[in-house]
Design a binder for these strands. Structure first.
Lengths: 356, 356
DNA sequence: TTGCGCTCCGAAACCGGTTTCGGTTAGCCT
DNA sequence: AGGCTAACCGAAACCGGTTTCGGAGCGCAA
């Protein structure tokens, strides 16, 4: 029914009051009589008055909006965690009637330019960034701009800013320890390029646990590959060609692990029996792989909410350093982990094949 | 280096000009000498001037922002297509330096209130909505508000507004025809609640193709269930308990199909051999299921871009009715489709067991 | 030289809110 | 009755841009 754009002026005219009075009435100022406040509120409701946010925010001097910088994806496949994160951020900001602005940049330098524009033009009062590099230029920029921000993940020097992360070091140490306790001693790691902190952390956890277990760290058993199922398949294929192949593989993500499963099956081996595989993420989809994937599950669903709440608190003046949250991943055993095969390597008749 | 917030006034003072001159210079008005324009542009660049968007948009009278209403998820799992869509929308708006605002509502009525607020408060100049119901109140509301919008999917009466959709009727007819050509005659359908148009379309395509193939439409073979893997598992379980169970199942989505695979395996049957299963979506993840899932793949990646471009065109004045795009899904054969088992039903010794 | 038109820029209104400041009225006290 | 305070509301400045309008300065023709 109500048509477009009922302005404050129109509302005031309708009430026989001035705009200033109506504005103060709606915003609960005490120098407006309760009766008037009530009357104004009712009229505003009936006419469906919605204050123009551009005007309001200009006047207020605050954008009442936070931004999320979508990570760029290697493949065309957007990562499912992004949708979850955005949903969580949305919930957090909606509680305050703020807005969530999602921004996507084509390249890393574009991204820096975007950040600059976003904050300098007053469009956002704070930013959430994902997947930081070990040394991330975005963070320096945001500091220079004095723009509140929170990081989903950490940089190498995790101090001085707010972040929410899952402890990849611990998770991968736990994964290794689990495999060791099953009896494995040749354990491989399939990771991805180490610019991203998460990739380095997971490798660190792996190496640390291997060392702590008294195993020798065999460089052959560490594969760095593309962050995708295809990458996992290639890397696992390489590992299986080794003269002394691993009996278990821990993978930097579930997608990578799924690729590894393919390679293992292709080789005529049975994942979980001949070769154990551990993933990381806890994707629901892992329940349906062949066989169902054992994984270190991280508590995804709350990340967005927490990051949103943290950022809002910081914008309100909280000390960023007070908002650093480290979550733990949890082992979810399905069917790709088991003791090492008692008759190892018998299948590797073709080991000496030429590797182009 | 450049500190926060260089205002137009500051820039003008620095140049010894007035704000109006500087503004017109930056916006390329012809009544400013080329020399001045150049001088202003250089200074703006050096000082890192970014016009305050709240002020600009207030003055302009246009929000230069489009909104996306995130669909609410049944489970806690956000659907992967959402991230892709958002990315595509982001690319489309970034070309124009517009913004993308993502909004999330807790309930259907909240969502209507959100829409009202979003457009009446001048925060968005257009909206994208996903997953319409057969009769979707959001569309009526948007019409009343005279707010440009595009729909990802369609309502029952697909006329009068702009949409982008994949032809579910045709896709499911094709799925059935494929199975029929393999020799199947008892084909089941696992769908989800029919309020959503896409669910109804897919069922329609199924029924139509079944009829066209001269098969009798057995109501027992149509299962309506939860839109998730668990739903698929339950429904497939029911189907397998039938006295005369189906030899093939077409599923409303890949996730549902994955659940069906579980049920089939649990029953001791071999998907793709004893029972064929077809999914819908073309999720990459289906390559890793057990066995890899045959599916009708829809062209996901471009949806966001197209919807964004369409909406921008409509905001520019295009007739919405001119922007209706129907894409086709494509059969991707993996390993869950095959001819019906030559020795059917032999496994069904336990058919007469009590059902809960 | 005067007048006309053109080029270029400044003054000011405006977008729609918020907020400060000041003024009117009523009530209360002495 | 006069004066003081408190309660309540209106006028106007302001946020930072855009845009209309008008005027100054100049060149050129009459």
């Amino acid at each position: 029914m109500a048509r477009q754009a009922v302005s404050l002026k129109a509302l005031a005219a309708h009430l026989g009051l001035t705009v200033s009075t109506v504005s103060r009435a709606l915003n609960g100022y005490s120098d407006i009589s309760a009766k008037t406040r009530e009357r104004v509120a009712r009229a505003a409701d009936e006419l469906g008055y919605r204050p123009n946010q551009n005007a309001r925010r200009l006047s207020i001097g605050a954008p009442e909006t936070i931004g999320y910088l979508m990570p760029r994806f290697s493949g065309s496949e957007a990562q499912p965690f992004v949708a979850q994160l955005i949903q969580g951020l949305g919930e957090a900001v909606t509680k305050r009637q703020w807005d969530l602005l999602v921004s996507h940049a084509a390249s890393a330098s574009d991204e820096l330019a975007q950040i600059d524009r976003l904050v300098r033009s007053g469009r956002v009062g704070g930013l959430v960034i994902s997947r930081p590099l070990k040394n991330d230029p975005r963070i320096n920029l945001l500091r220079d701009l004095k723009c509140p921000f929170v990081v989903h993940g950490r940089t190498a020097s995790s101090g001085g800013y707010a972040w929410y992360d899952v402890d990849g070091v611990e998770a991968f140490a736990a994964a290794v320890n689990h495999l060791v306790s099953l009896g494995h001693s040749r354990i491989a790691f399939i990771g991805t390029t180490l610019q991203h902190t998460f990739a380095q952390d997971r490798l660190n956890g792996f190496e640390q646990a291997v060392a702590d277990s008294g195993l020798t760290l065999d460089r052959e058993l560490i594969q760095i590959t593309d962050f995708s199922d295809d990458g996992g398949e290639v890397a696992a294929g390489q590992l299986l060609e080794l003269v002394d192949p691993p009996t278990a593989m821990v993978c930097v993500s579930d997608m990578v692990a799924l690729g590894a499963l393919s390679a293992i099956r292709r080789k005529g081996l049975r994942p979980g029996i001949d070769v154990s595989v551990l993933g990381y993420d806890g994707l629901k989809i892992g329940e349906h792989s062949n066989p169902p994937l054992t994984t270190m599950a991280q508590p995804q669903s709350q990340a967005g909410r927490r990051l949103g709440d943290m950022l809002l608190a910081i914008i309100d003046g909280d000390d960023p350093k007070k908002h650093q949250e480290l979550q733990r991943a949890q082992l979810v055993r399905r069917n790709t982990d088991g003791p090492p095969c008692s008759v190892p390597h018998e299948n590797h008749v073709s080991v000496r094949e030429e590797q182009q």
